[in-house]
């Protein structure tokens, strides 16, 4: 039986009819067709589906859609500015060569953005901690960490 939920999605008030057994990821990808958020495993083990809820990075594949009620969700689609210009963290990923196949990147950006929104100048340890749940097979993580550092230093 469908339920109505109201929440904020990328700064916009959103009202949706949802099935209680959906995950937030299902709502985003399959219903809203916001496919920037990826599913890499479905078990919270890879971080590709990371979104920010009320300021915290979470795995949307494990997040019951009913819990979204009243909360504020930010997805990768909400990170860049409306005019298409990139957020500094996105720009840093581009400029530092942190992107290869790119499948992990939306999750990486959401995880690091959750950190950077809280801390202007995080330590390297905090940077690594913020993305330790985001698997990447292409980059060896080096340039991803560099990209986050470059924003952390430049803010």
């Amino acid at each position: 039986m469908k339920k109505e939920i109201t929440f904020t999605l990328n700064k916009e008030k959103t009202i949706m009819e949802v099935d209680p057994q959906w995950t937030l990821l299902h709502l985003l990808r399959e219903v809203l067709e916001m496919t920037g958020t990826k599913e890499g495993c479905g078990y919270g083990e890879c971080g590709a589906c990371t979104v920010i809820i009320d300021g915290e990075a979470v795995n949307s594949c494990l997040y019951p859609v009913m819990e979204v009620e009243g909360r504020s969700v930010m997805t990768i689609e909400g990170v860049a500015l409306k005019d298409g210009s990139l957020d500094p963290i996105q720009q840093a990923f581009v400029d530092e060569g942190a992107v290869q196949c790119g499948f992990c990147i939306p999750g990486m950006i959401m995880s690091s953005k959750a950190l950077l929104d809280k801390k202007d100048k995080p330590t390297e340890e905090e940077i690594k901690e913020s993305i330790e749940g985001n698997l990447c097979r292409c980059t060896g993580y080096v340039k991803i960490v560099d990209a986050i550092k470059s924003v952390a230093g430049g803010r």
């Binding site: 916001m34 496919t35 920037g36 958020t37 990826k38 997805t75 990768i76 689609e77 990170v79 860049a80 990139l86 996105q90 990923f93 581009v94 400029d95 060569g97 942190a98 992107v99 290869q100 790119g102 499948f103 990147i105 939306p106 950006i109």
Partner: peptide, 15 residues
């Protein structure tokens, strides 16, 4: 920088 990086950092790339 990679030409496709902006697409991939914004979630616009279609896999």
């Amino acid at each position: 920088p990679k030409k496709d990086a902006p697409l991939k950092t914004t979630g616009a790339a279609v896999y």
